[in-house]
């Protein structure tokens, strides 16, 4: 079943097309990777799905219902949660409060405060932050701040989670933990669409990969197909190979 699909999604900044006529879909239960060189329009696409930006044309549907045109909080309550490329936590609010906001406001059906608190604690335990619940969020390490963002997103009880660069800036141990976290989230039945730059990580974890370049979708397929694709190697992996040499 298609949980998320976009048709002809287009976004202009000034006269420049940041995303032009992109069609995509995510199936229920998948982990889909969104990759592409810097400036390819990955985060822009996230912003369009989560309604941080309004698209110029096209349509985005979630569970068969149109969500493009909704406000950010409505998209969240519909069941699409997200994290941010540069972490956006509520620094002076304790860790538990951050997550509590998700369970209090992010769900479609209102929760009693006791249920919300339980839900928030559960999310914290799930990401492994329950011992730090009273710490102001700004005092956490970067890796923990990223986990907190995930916990906050999970507390809104999403069916689809958009993860924007979970690994960037983490050390190898933290990276392994983060990848493990992503699979555990999927095991809970939550579909995942993730942006990532670290190729090794994304190739090992994703069921399917969508490649963006200059705002256009240039390839789509399993990790094996993507690594074998000539176009992708040229525009994307090729870039990296040159940069690496």
């Amino acid at each position: 079943m298609r949980i998320l699909e976009g048709e002809g999604v287009t976004k202009y900044f000034g006269g420049l097309a940041a995303i032009s006529n992109v069609g995509f879909h995510v199936d229920q239960g998948e982990i889909v990777g969104l990759i592409g060189p810097n400036g390819a329009g990955k985060t822009t696409l996230f912003n369009l799905i989560s309604a941080a930006l309004v698209l110029n044309s096209g349509v985005i549907k979630f569970k068969g219902e149109k969500i493009s045109g909704l406000k950010p909080h409505q998209v969240c309550r519909a069941g699409v949660a997200r994290t941010f490329q540069s972490v956006k936590i509520f620094g002076n609010i304790p860790v538990l409060g951050n997550v509590l906001l998700g369970s209090l406001f992010g769900t479609s059906t209102g929760m009693s405060s006791a249920d919300a608190a339980r839900e928030a604690m559960e999310s914290l335990e799930f990401v492994g932050l329950s011992t730090m619940r009273a710490t102001p969020a700004k005092d956490l390490t970067l890796a923990n701040q990223k986990r907190l963002e995930v916990a906050r997103a999970l507390a809104t009880q999403p069916d689809l989670l958009l993860i924007d660069e979970l690994i960037a800036g983490l050390n190898p141990t933290e990276t392994a933990q983060a990848m493990e976290l992503v699979t555990r989230i999927r095991d809970r039945g939550i579909t995942i669409l993730m942006i990532e730059h670290v190729m090794k990580a994304i190739m090992s974890i994703c069921d399917r990969i969508i490649v963006l370049h200059h705002g256009e979708k240039i390839a789509e397929g399993t990790p094996q197909e993507i690594t074998a694709s000539k176009t992708v190697v040229e525009v994307y992996l090729g870039d990296q190979a040159y940069a690496g040499s």
């Binding site: 989560s50 941080a52 406000k71 950010p72 909080h73 998209v75 969240c76 309550r77 949660a81 997200r82 941010f84 956006k88 936590i89 509520f90 620094g91 002076n92 609010i93 409060g97 951050n98 509590l100 906001l101 998700g102 209090l104 406001f105 992010g106 769900t107 405060s113 919300a116 906050r152 997103a153 809104t156």
Partner: peptide
């Protein structure tokens, strides 16, 4: 809970909106 929400707006309004 609205007090907490107001505080989150002061911290990061965009994140508040995406938290529902």
């Amino acid at each position: 809970k609205y007090g907490l929400a107001l505080q989150s707006i002061g911290e990061d309004e965009e994140a508040s909106a995406h938290t529902g």
